[in-house]
Amino acid sequence: MEENLLLNQLVERYIDNQASEKELEVFFFLLEQGKLDDMLMQYMDKDQQIYITENISLASQKPAKVKFINNPRVIAAAAVVFVFLLAGFFLYKSKVLNQDTTIKYEQVSTHNGEIKSIELSDGSIVFLNSNSTLKYTDDFNGDKRVVELLEGEAYFDIKHDAAKPFVVKTGNILTNVLGTSFNIRSIKYINEVKITVTKGKVSVQSNYAEPARTSQVILIPDEQADINRNTGNIIKNKVKSADILNWREGGLYFDNENFRDVSAILETKFGYTIKFANDDIPNYRFTAGFKSTENIMDILNALCLANNLKYKITNETVLLKNR
């Protein structure tokens, strides 16, 4: 008999409580040698599949005795599952051998008023603000961990891995880190992309072909890079990063931002359209933080009070005009 069959028998007898003293001794010895790993995993996988596919419920059963293996239907199901597992295993194996490197990308989007958190396969966490899209892959096999913020705002809490830098792509802008936390806001109708660091060190690079230029800055905590989307020009500012992150609790924070950008953010968050009665208003600037409970009226009131404006809401449209 082949050794594999003997090992299989041993594992099976262990599981079914049929192993004698001697067999147990051999079982634990071979287990230590790693010789039973595959066998054990197969049995575990098999059982797992049965539980998952067979909808077993314990409502009327005692947990102690395992009875279901006597059921021919289950055995048949298990056999089928096992064949599939085996097929899957070989398929997987052949793929690995063929060095199949096609990377599968996942894409997560949020809609109005929704915030999501995503855990990446390396343990890093990404909080995705409303109306944002993140593209990522679940296996970071290359020498870098690359994700792409296609739209919107996200806060990244990155697991340290010196061997594999983490890179966030936002259009032509690359944010490189080893292990740190930072926030990126890249909203398509706002010309400035803002990258803010809360922990560690981040390098931000913009690569523009026309005109050909590369700019780079290094950011430390409470520093923000404002990057002009059109020119790639980077300006470094001091900020309070904690305030910028309060969107994660549903809050809003505006740090000396012009009304054009403020209203773009309000539009995405509340689903209103914001219009201006004259061309000066979009260039007004505004600094304020809001907690999650506040509605658009509270924010508009604060906006107007600070800038001597008034607002009128008709349907889903807000009109801002001078008082």
């Binding site: 599981i15 054990l40 049995y43 575990m44 059982d47 314990l58 947990p63 395992v66």
Partner: peptide, 13 residues
């Protein structure tokens, strides 16, 4: 919990 218990107990005794 009861299902998971039964599942692992078969291997862990």
């Amino acid at each position: 919990q009861p299902l998971l218990y039964r599942f692992v107990n078969r291997f862990l005794k």
